[in-house]
């Protein structure tokens, strides 16, 4: 399969406030969130970024989604650079994270039209897409209810539908099943598998091993902002379970530092 996403030496440093320095128990004024990270993703696969909290997963995905700029390094999505062509990159991706909220005042129907306009989807195409996605996710029955009055599961379904209005080639999903009950989580994993089946490329970040084992073709384990290992899932789980493998790698890399 051809490569569609290439990450080259991505680096991101945050400045810490005095308060954050205390929390992190450090005197350094900066924190390296992502340090020289490189990996590639092939077209049509589900790639998982696995790592503990604070490893730099979310920061990496935000850089891929062009919400924040890398300090150095670059990433290319279908040939477009996140640094120099963010506008083109945004046309290409559907980005989903629990931090991107929907305006509670509006109805799913209104928000669908709004985001379709921002994604330059024409009226006819929009209505067809709406019918399709609302049916897939069962949104039609609450399409005219304000988002504020929807349950967490319903909101998640609306978010999924809105993220792929423009039929993006690449779907980037930060912590897809965090905080969801098993039923909603299943909706999400089913959604990801369906998208894969229809030829999309998917990048997810998570700290849940079972999710990676269930859906990912390849995975990279990030520890302290660097890629500890990156391989196909079958290679990663050849001799032991993913969780045991992770503990091995973790004690290795943390041991290196100490």
């Amino acid at each position: 399969m051809p490569e569609i996403l290439r990450v080259e030496g991505l680096k991101k440093t945050f400045t810490l406030s005095a308060k954050q320095q205390k929390l992190e128990k450090t005197r350094s004024k900066t924190k390296v969130a992502v340090n020289d990270l490189s990996f590639t993703v092939n077209e049509g696969e589900i790639f998982g970024l696995l790592g503990p909290n604070g490893a730099g997963k979310t920061t990496t995905l935000r850089m891929l989604a062009t919400l924040i700029r890398p300090d150095s390094g670059d990433a290319f999505l279908d040939g477009f650079s996140v640094k120099t062509q963010p506008y083109e990159v945004r046309k290409l991706i559907g980005f989903l994270t629990s931090e991107l909220k929907l305006e509670e005042f509006f109805t799913p129907n209104y928000l669908f039209d709004f985001f379709a306009n921002l994604h330059n989807v024409g009226r006819a195409a929009r209505e067809a897409r709406k019918a399709e996605l609302f049916a897939t996710f069962g949104i039609a029955e609450f399409a005219e209810v304000k988002v504020a009055n929807l349950s967490t599961g319903m909101k998640q379904k609306v978010s999924l539908a809105l993220a792929i209005i423009h039929d993006p080639k690449i779907i980037i999903f930060d912590e897809p099943t965090n905080g969801l009950d098993v039923l909603t989580a299943k909706t999400v994993t089913d959604f990801l598998l369906e998208q894969k089946a229809s030829g999309k490329t998917i990048v997810v970040s998570t700290h849940i091993f079972s999710l990676v084992e269930k859906i990912c073709d390849r995975a990279g384990i990030i520890i302290d902002g660097t890629m500890a290992v990156c391989d196909t899932l079958s290679a990663l789980t050849a001799d032991k379970s993913l969780e045991d493998k992770f503990f091995d790698i973790y004690s290795e890399s943390v041991g290196d530092e100490q």
Partner: peptide, 15 residues
């Protein structure tokens, strides 16, 4: 919009 986290949702679209 910042407080509610809705502005970032708009910022990931090609606007």
């Amino acid at each position: 919009e910042k407080e509610r986290g809705t502005i970032a949702t708009i910022l990931v679209t090609p606007i």
